[in-house]
Nucleic acid binder design. Structure first.
Length: 623
RNA sequence: CGGGGUGUAGCGCAGCCUGGUAGCGCGCCUGCUUUGGGAGCAGGAUGUCGGAGGUUCGAAUCCUCUCACCCCGACCA
C-alpha cells in the first residue's frame, strides 16, 4: 500500500502548495493558473476550513440491503450495510469515505478535549524495535498478541500494540529535571493487537485506532491530580459524543500499575459485566467488584452428614433438583492447578468463579484448570462428584467467603454417583485453609461501600486510565533530578481511548429498525437534502443547490442527494446512514413554498417555509 | 489453541443426501415507462462452485488433505 497523506480541505491545500513548487514546470503552470483563478477561496481555506459538504453523485455511497452473513452484532451489520466499513480480512477493516468521516469526528472531539486538558500531541512509530520490549520485560509477556516482524537484517520488531516503552524511552532521553515535569503526551494512532478472536467488526478488530496518552510526574500526588484531570476529560469526551457511559473501577491487567478506571458505553451486547450500586456512586467491573462476606455468622449444624446416591447428577442444579433443596444450599468444588499442586476452590452452587480473583490467591498464580486425569489421580474420583470432605493432605482448600459462612450444605462425596448432605465445617471437615473472595458478584449482593445493593449491566470498554506509578520508569531507567539534586524515577500514568471502537459502540446505542441514528457530534453529515426529481425539475435543482450552498456557507456539513433515484431509495439510504437531519425538496412542496424537515429520531416530519429554511434549520441545529 | 459451523455471481441463498458439467432473489449494465417510501417491462453481463489431490467415462455433489471465514471459551481500547 502506498502511504497517502490524509486530506481534509485544509491539508490538501498546503500539500498541493508544497508539491507544486517541487514538480515540473508545466505542472506548476497548471497549478498557478488554478491558484490565480480562485485566490479568495484559498485564502478563506487558510483562515477557516469550510465544512466539507458533498453531493451523493460525487461522493461514494455504498449501501447494502442485506448484511453479509458473518455480521452478528447490530452495529457491525449496520456499519456494513451503511457502507461505513468493508472487511479486508479477519479483524482488518477499510474505513470507507462515509465511515472515515465519522471516525474523524470522534478523533476531533478526542483531540480537542485532550488539548483542552493540557496534553500535548506527538506521534510515535507504529513499528518498534524488540530491544525496548525486552528491556521492559514485556516482549515475552505480551506474547502472541504482538505482531512480531523482522527487517531485512533479520532484526526483531513489533507492530506496536501500545506505546509505554517508546514514550518511556522518550522521557528518559528528554526529561532530566523536575522543572520539565509534569507533562502528558498523547497520540492518535493505529495499533495492532493480534487478538485470539477478532469479532464484531471494528468493535474488536486487530488493527484499530487508539488515542493513547502518557503522563510523567515528580510524585504520586501529582500523578493522582493528572489522573483525575484525565478522568474528567474522558467524561467530557464521552458526554460530547452523546454516549451513555459509566466509569468503573477496573483491574489493571497486563498494562500494570495501581489505580485504574474503565469507561464503558452501556450496551446489552457489551463484552464486560459491570456492577454498580444505585444508592451510591460505586461502580466496578465485575472482574474486580468485591463480594463482601455475609453479614450474619455461620449458623450451627442441625443435620447429620449423610451420603446420598445421586447417580448421573454431576451439576449442582441437577443434585439440588433431585434432593428438593435450594441451589444456595449446595457447594461446588473446582480443581485448579498451580504447576502440579492442586487447589480445591469452593463456591456456592449459584455462584461463579472469578478467575482474576482466583489468580490473586497466594501460591496459585498462574493457574490452570485440572485435567480429568489429574482430578482422578489426586482425589480418586471423577469430576462431578468431587468435594472437600475427606481429601488427601497436600490439597489446599480455598473457600469463597459465602461458602465459609454456610452450614448443613450439599457437596460431592468424592465417590462417583454420591453426594453428601448436612455437611459442616469444623465437624465433618477442617476449616478451609484459605477463605477469600473468589466469586463474581451477583445482583442483590451488598455494595462494597456499604450503601445499597449491587445491580449488574453490560458495557463496551471505550476508555481506560491507569496509574502506572514507576513500573516502566524503573524498568527502563526514566529518572529526573528533584529539587535536592536527587535522582528519582518518574511517576507515570497512561490513558487510552478506543477511537474506532467508539463508532461501533455508539451505533449499539443509537439505532432503530431503519438503521443508524448518529448523534450530531458524530454524524458523517449533519443534514441530508433529499432532492426528489433533481434531474427532472429545474425548480427542485435550484432550490436544492441554493440550500446546499447556503448551509455550507453557514458552516453546516450537508449531503445533497442529487441522484436520479426514486424517493424511497434515497430516504432509505439516508436513514440507514444515520444522518440526523433531513430536508426533502420536491415539486409538490415547492408549489406551496414549502420544504419538509424530518429529524432522524422523531416520527413525524414537518413542513418548513422554503424562503426561511436556512435560518429555521440553523436554529434547529443550534438547539 | 480447543469445541461447533460455513465456503457456489458484488450481497443473501438453493443445488450436494440419490455424480451427468450451475440456478433463484437482490444488486449491476442497456432501453422504454415510472418518480413523495427500497418501481414495472424487455434485454444483458458476471462463477476455473475456497484451493490441491484422489475415486469415476464423468465431481459443486463422493473421499483425503489444505486454506479462509464465522460462532462458543482464556486477552484488551
Amino acid at each position: 500500500m502506498e502511504c497517502v497523506p490524509r486530506r481534509n480541505a485544509r491539508q490538501t491545500t498546503t500539500h498541493d502548495y508544497h508539491r507544486s513548487s517541487a514538480t515540473s514546470r508545466s505542472r506548476r503552470r497548471k497549478h498557478c493558473g488554478l491558484r490565480r483563478a480562485r485566490p479568495p477561496y484559498r485564502i478563506a481555506v487558510f483562515l477557516s476550513p469550510p465544512p466539507s459538504s458533498m453531493r451523493v453523485s460525487q461522493f461514494f455511497l455504498s449501501t447494502l440491503k442485506e448484511a453479509p452473513a458473518e455480521a452478528e452484532l447490530i452495529s457491525h451489520r449496520l456499519m456494513l450495510r451503511a457502507g461505513l466499513i468493508r472487511k479486508l480480512g479477519s479483524g482488518l477493516y477499510t474505513w470507507m469515505p462515509l465511515g472515515l468521516r465519522v471516525l474523524r469526528k470522534v478523533e476531533a472531539i478526542v483531540r480537542e478535549e485532550m488539548n483542552r486538558a493540557g496534553a500535548v500531541e506527538l506521534s510515535m512509530p507504529a513499528v518498534q524495535p524488540a530491544e525496548l520490549w525486552q528491556e521492559s520485560g514485556r516482549w515475552a509477556v505480551f506474547g502472541p498478541q504482538m505482531l512480531k516482524i523482522k527487517d531485512r537484517h533479520d532484526r526483531d520488531f513489533c507492530f506496536g500494540p501500545t506505546h509505554e516503552e517508546v514514550i518511556t524511552d522518550i522521557a528518559r532521553r528528554e526529561i532530566r529535571s523536575y522543572r520539565q515535569l509534569p507533562v502528558n503526551f498523547y497520540q492518535i494512532q493505529t495499533k495492532f493487537r493480534d487478538e485470539i478472536r477478532p469479532r464484531f467488526g471494528v468493535m474488536r478488530a486487530r488493527e484499530f485506532l487508539m488515542k493513547d496518552a502518557y503522563s510523567f510526574h515528580t510524585g504520586f500526588d501529582d500523578l493522582q491530580r493528572e489522573y483525575r484531570n484525565m478522568y474528567d476529560a474522558y467524561s467530557r469526551i464521552f458526554t460530547r459524543l452523546g454516549l451513555q457511559f459509566r466509569a468503573v473501577a477496573a483491574d489493571t491487567g497486563a498494562i500494570g500499575g495501581t489505580g485504574s478506571h474503565e469507561f464503558h458505553v452501556l450496551a446489552d451486547s457489551g463484552e464486560d459485566a459491570l456492577a454498580f450500586s444505585p444508592a451510591s456512586d460505586y461502580a466496578a467491573n465485575v472482574e474486580l467488584a468485591e463480594a463482601v462476606a455475609p453479614a450474619s455468622p455461620r449458623a450451627g449444624a442441625t443435620q447429620p452428614m449423610t451420603k446420598v446416591p445421586t447417580p448421573g447428577k454431576t451439576t449442582c442444579e441437577d443434585v439440588v433438583a433431585l434432593l428438593g433443596l435450594p441451589l444456595t444450599q449446595s457447594v461446588k468444588a473446582l480443581a485448579l492447578m498451580h504447576e502440579d499442586r492442586l487447589f480445591l476452590l469452593l463456591l456456592r452452587g449459584d455462584h461463579h468463579l472469578n478467575e482474576i480473583k482466583a489468580g490473586k490467591i497466594p501460591g496459585l498464580d498462574p493457574f490452570r484448570f485440572a485435567t480429568d486425569g489429574e482430578i482422578v489421580g489426586k482425589l480418586g474420583c471423577k469430576p462431578g462428584y468431587i468435594g472437600p470432605v475427606g481429601i488427601p493432605s497436600g490439597i489446599t482448600v480455598v473457600a469463597d467467603r459465602a461458602v465459609a459462612a454456610m452450614s448443613d450444605f450439599v457437596c460431592g462425596a468424592n465417590e462417583a454417583g454420591f453426594h453428601l448432605t448436612g455437611v459442616n465445617f469444623g465437624r465433618d471437615l477442617p476449616e478451609p485453609t484459605i477463605v477469600a473472595d473468589i466469586r463474581n458478584v451477583v445482583p442483590g449482593d451488598p455494595s462494597p461501600d456499604g450503601r445499597g445493593s449491587l445491580e449488574l449491566c453490560r458495557g463496551v470498554e471505550v476508555g481506560h486510565i491507569f496509574q502506572l506509578r514507576t513500573k516502566y520508569s524503573e524498568a527502563m531507567g526514566a529518572t529526573f533530578l528533584d529539587e535536592q539534586g536527587q535522582s528519582q524515577p518518574m511517576e507515570m500514568g497512561c490513558y487510552g481511548i478506543g477511537v474506532s471502537r467508539i463508532v461501533a459502540a455508539s451505533i449499539e446505542q443509537n439505532h432503530d429498525d431503519r438503521g443508524i441514528m448518529f448523534p450530531d457530534a458524530m454524524a458523517p453529515f449533519r443534514i441530508a437534502l433529499v432532492a426528489i426529481g433533481y434531474r427532472k425539475s429545474e425548480a427542485v435543482k435550484q432550490a436544492a443547490d441554493a440550500l446546499h450552498d447556503a448551509l455550507t456557507a453557514a458552516g453546516v456539513e450537508v449531503l445533497l442527494d442529487d441522484r436520479d433515484e426514486r424517493p424511497g431509495v434515497m430516504f432509505a439510504d439516508i436513514e440507514l446512514t444515520g444522518i440526523p437531519h433531513r430536508v426533502t425538496i420536491g415539486d409538490r412542496g415547492l408549489k406551496s413554498g414549502e420544504l419538509e424537515y424530518q429529524n432522524r429520531r422523531e416520527g413525524q416530519s414537518q413542513p418548513i417555509p422554503a424562503a426561511e429554511a436556512v435560518p429555521w434549520l440553523l436554529e434547529r441545529l443550534a438547539g
